[in-house]
Design a protein around this nucleic acid. Structure first.
Lengths: 148, 148
DNA sequence: GTGCAATCAATGCAGGTGCATATAAACGAA
DNA sequence: TTCGTTTATATGCACCTGCATTGATTGCAC
């Protein structure tokens, strides 16, 4: 039974605290701008930057790390707002192919400045360039491919 | 309108990805052990380590960063399980004073090894002591007191 | 081809969260 | 004292999430 050192526990606590505080700030900024939540952005972003603005629903799951049923229902909402379209894949009828609409692209473009500003204001502005790189490097070390 | 550098965006993305992945691992470990979610632990922890195992409900809000109504309803559940007691404050009848019960302490003690093991396995084991300290330092720079 | 496991999406249900608001106590000014 | 403000907690409602399961399609072994 392995136990973390106090330094590790402190780093863990900082990680959770910081991420939660920053997420709150970002979501708050989006709300103030009367824009949808961050998950909407991330899904639109992934589809938008995929080839032809299209991506399988499972691809969105993989990239966003959202649960299958959450992607399913989030896409329901996106579709209801005409931001994406669900199409059937001609090669494998099990798959949904999600296609972003012009309205979806427009919303994503509208959200990014608000999102970017919040990141910079609450996060970027408090770190030097070198510190940001160092932080990314350290965090990347933590998330690694499963051993199995 | 300030914009983050690509390095800052990358650090931000790493932060969100890493925190979410780790939280999932920890919650999963607790579930496998048939223990309650992390929020329960944090609330019990704060009350447990306060003087006399008692703390005002607002104190819990401040320390856990949970929303007022979420603390209220989480305490409802904790109380239903006899893990804490709500008492009226004799000095100011608006306040609830939360007192942890023996059962609450026992549950917290039971949860910690599972929590600790998950932290160490998925987080601590992938960082050196120096890296953990560095990470905590960088993250602490980000969360700072409000300017106002 | 047939049968069976694997993959992908969707959904009923229970429960958790956010928002706005209600209730109640304490404080302070006139 | 009385009224308005602030602080602390609770709750109705809508929505979101997690879990388990279903339905549908595909791939594979035989």
């Amino acid at each position: 039974m392995s136990k973390p050192t106090p330094e590790v526990v402190e780093a863990w606590a900082s990680l959770v605290r910081t991420e939660r505080a920053l997420l709150d700030k970002v979501e708050e900024a989006l709300k103030r701008a009367r824009l949808p939540a961050l998950d909407w952005y991330h899904v639109l972003h992934e589809i938008d930057r995929a080839p032809k603005g299209m991506m399988r629903q499972t691809g969105v799951q993989d990239r966003t790390q959202l649960a299958q049923y959450n992607v399913c229902r989030l896409v329901d909402r996106l579709e209801r707002e005409a931001l994406v379209e669900r199409r059937q894949c001609p090669l494998d009828a099990r798959n949904n192919v999600l296609a972003i609409t012009a309205k979806g692209r427009a919303l994503r473009r509208q959200m990014w400045p608000v999102y970017a500003r919040a990141i910079d204001e609450h996060f970027g502005a408090r770190l030097s360039q070198a510190e940001a790189e160092q932080l990314a490097r350290l965090l990347a070390k933590v998330v690694q491919p499963e051993p199995g």
